[in-house]
Structures are given as structure tokens and as C-alpha cells.
């Protein structure tokens, strides 16, 4: 199966947030479908942990050029997903289409994924981790992701990696020509060595990357330090064990020599 990809295009987005409502509805329907929750409860309760796509509205710039920007906060389905790598019980898996999915039945709610994710995506609720699953079941059954289906302005589109990138680059080129501002497809190329490429890409004016909270070097320094110390620790531990064995052999030999010379007494 080819790699599935989603794209959010900031230009045609009319800020109707149908995608976010669609995501929330889809995840409530899942609970009902899987008999985890009755329909009344799923509608009455806010269940915010089921909204895997959420708006982050922020003021950007300073007067007189200040403006409001709504960044989309969501899982990027990273190529080298740090959440997947750190999960101690392998509760985070990669589907054939490369969607990074939490299996709640396996999850023990240790929050490691939350600490590892440089985009602060997973949400822990009642001892389980929740995040976007890329609607892998819909996609595997020939449907579009719920957010993509809900979007009325083609600001969200999806398909195979090749299809999406072809369309995304075409749009970015067009916007660049029309507006004179360079537009980029964030996530199409390796972002950094922590996350690799992203499977949720965003078309955005280059100068607005920061406004849209699209981090060009997503990493948690302390977690990188933890990984580095782990490597030093394993090499160091092996060296210490080897050094101890070596010292013992040397020490016993030297002692034998001293005993034979009569310098020390054998006990």
C-alpha cells in the first residue's frame, strides 16, 4: 500500500472549522459503533480528548501589523514518529498507509508518547492516550478522512503521497506567482532528524511558518539528551563490566605474583 497523506492549505481555508467538527463527530461515532458509549452520553459530554484536530487561535505580529492566525494543532504522522519509538508497550503502531495509530487496548497510559512528541499532540485521558489516527479504517475502506470529507473549500485534501505532493506543489507555485510571497509545503521534505517527513503537510507562505506554529526544527532538547545519555550509558556500562573483569583478572595475577615472592600472605 502506498503512503497516505493529508494536506491543509491555508489559502482557501475559510475558517469554518467543519474539519474539526467532522473529526469530533467521527470519533464519537466510533465509540458508539464500538459500543463503548451510548449516543446520549457521547453527545452530552464534551469529550475533548476525541477532537484530534483543534484550532489554536493567536495574535501574531505587533501593531499596526498585528493579525489573528488560527494554527491547526494535530498529529503529523511523522515518518520517524518519536511517540512510536518511545512507547514501552508498542501500543503505537503504523498502519500500511503509514498512519501512526494508538491502540487504546494496549496502551497503559504512561504518557511517554506525550513527552516524546515534539508537537505536544497525544492527550492522556483515563489512563489511555488519544490522538489522530488518520481515519485509517475509513481510508482502508475507500473513504476519505473525516476532516477531508467535511471541508467545503478543498483546503483539506488527501490521497497517496505522490498525488498529494503533486497537487500541493502545484498550489504553492500558483500562490507564489499570484501573491509574490513564497509559499512552501511544510513537511513534504525531511523536517529534521527527529521526525523525518510528515504525512500531514501544510501549504503556507514561508514567512508565516512561525505564525502557523509550523516548527522547522521540532525537537525536545531534554528528550534528545535522554536518548544521547542512553547511548553513552550502554557503551559506558559495557566498558565498566569489561573493565571490572579485566581488573579482577589482573588483580588476581598480580596477587599470585606477590604471594609467590612472599610479599603478601595467602589468606
Amino acid at each position: 500500500m502506498s503512503v497516505n497523506m493529508k494536506c491543509y492549505d491555508t489559502t482557501p481555508c475559510i475558517r469554518c472549522f467543519a474539519c474539526m467538527v467532522g473529526c469530533s463527530v467521527e470519533n464519537r461515532l466510533r465509540l458508539q459503533r464500538e459500543s463503548h458509549i451510548g449516543i446520549e452520553k457521547s453527545v452530552q459530554n464534551r469529550l475533548t480528548y476525541l477532537s484530534h484536530l483543534s484550532p489554536q487561535r493567536r495574535e501574531f505580529g505587533s501593531f499596526p501589523n498585528a493579525r489573528q492566525v488560527t494554527a491547526f494543532h494535530h498529529c503529523n504522522h511523522c515518518e520517524d514518529a518519536p511517540c512510536l519509538e518511545i512507547c514501552p508497550v508498542d501500543a503505537i503502531i503504523r498502519r500500511d498507509g503509514k498512519e501512526v495509530v494508538v491502540v487504546q487496548e494496549t496502551c497503559i497510559g504512561c504518557s511517554s508518547c506525550l513527552d516524546a512528541c515534539p508537537f505536544d499532540v497525544p492527550v492522556i485521558k483515563d489512563g489511555k492516550s488519544y490522538k489522530c489516527h488518520g481515519c485509517y479504517d475509513r481510508v482502508e475502506n475507500g473513504l476519505k478522512q473525516s476532516c477531508v470529507s467535511a471541508c467545503p473549500s478543498s483546503a483539506m485534501f488527501s490521497g497517496t503521497k505522490e498525488e498529494v505532493l503533486k497537487e500541493a506543489y502545484k498550489r504553492a507555485k500558483l500562490y507564489t506567482e499570484k501573491t509574490g510571497k513564497e509559499h512552501v509545503v511544510y513537511g513534504a521534505d525531511e523536517v529534521n532528524s527527529t521526525v523525518g517527513e510528515l504525512r500531514w503537510v501544510t501549504i503556507v507562505p514561508k514567512e508565516d511558518l512561525e505564525a502557523y506554529k509550523l516548527d522547522t526544527n521540532p525537537k525536545k532538547l531534554v528528550m534528545s539528551a535522554r536518548e544521547a545519555v542512553k547511548v553513552v550509558g550502554s557503551v559506558g556500562s559495557v566498558a565498566i563490566v569489561a573493565g571490572s573483569i579485566g581488573h579482577l583478572i589482573y588483580w588476581l595475577g598480580k596477587r599470585k605474583e606477590k604471594i609467590s615472592k612472599g610479599e603478601v600472605e595467602e589468606k
Binding site: 506525550l114 513527552d115 531534554v222 528528550m223 545519555v229 542512553k230
Partner: peptide, 14 residues
């Protein structure tokens, strides 16, 4: 909490 996780691991390794 992220700092705590890193500090827990690093201090354990030492």
C-alpha cells in the same frame, strides 16, 4: 513532566 522524565532517565543511567 517532560523534564522530569528526562532527568529520571539520565540520573538513573549515571
Amino acid at each position: 513532566a517532560t523534564y522530569a522524565r528526562a532527568a529520571h532517565a539520565i540520573s538513573f543511567i549515571i
